[in-house]
Amino acid sequence: MTDAAETTEPALGDPQGRPAGPFAFGAGIVLVSGVLLSQVFAIDTTEGFSPQGPRFLPLVVLTLMLVLGLVYLAQQAAAVRQGGSLPAEPFTHLAAAAVLVGILVVYAFVLGPVGYVPATALFFVAAARTMGSRHLTRDVVVGIGLALLVYLSFTRALGVFLPQGVFPL
């Protein structure tokens, strides 16, 4: 956690503990470890599971992760039995976060075809608005300014390629 001063672990027995989240996350860890573990067997090698071969360490690491995922689930189950939960912060503004991820994905797709400057300016305005900004004019001005500044300084001064897109600059 970045700001340890503010994050306090909910004590065991705290009725505010939200048990579902850690269960879901732990199940996810176990599931992903299991799927990846099956991929270890798909690695093409003549060396089998010899320690020098390409399968050995992935096998060890993923097996450990699977076991630790189960331990995490067991810890959460024990905490819930005592009426608490492992640390899990509430998902409050989840809709906004989902929208933001959606905007990011759209940005990734339009960046190339539309061009860096218009895509970035639009993304900036949309992202700022999703995060609670209510000053459209300011966001548009800052968005266009930032996109232009980044585009010109990176392509002209720093020699990094960025897509030009529909508006030739």
């Binding site: 990011l104 970035t120 993304f123 900036f124 992202a127 700022a128 608005r129 999703t130 995060m131 609670g132 900004s133 300011r138 966001d139 800052v142 968005g143 930032l146 996109a147 980044v150």
Partner: peptide, 10 residues
Amino acid sequence: RPVLYAGILV
């Protein structure tokens, strides 16, 4: 903050 974090994402 929205302006700052939008900038971070850019």
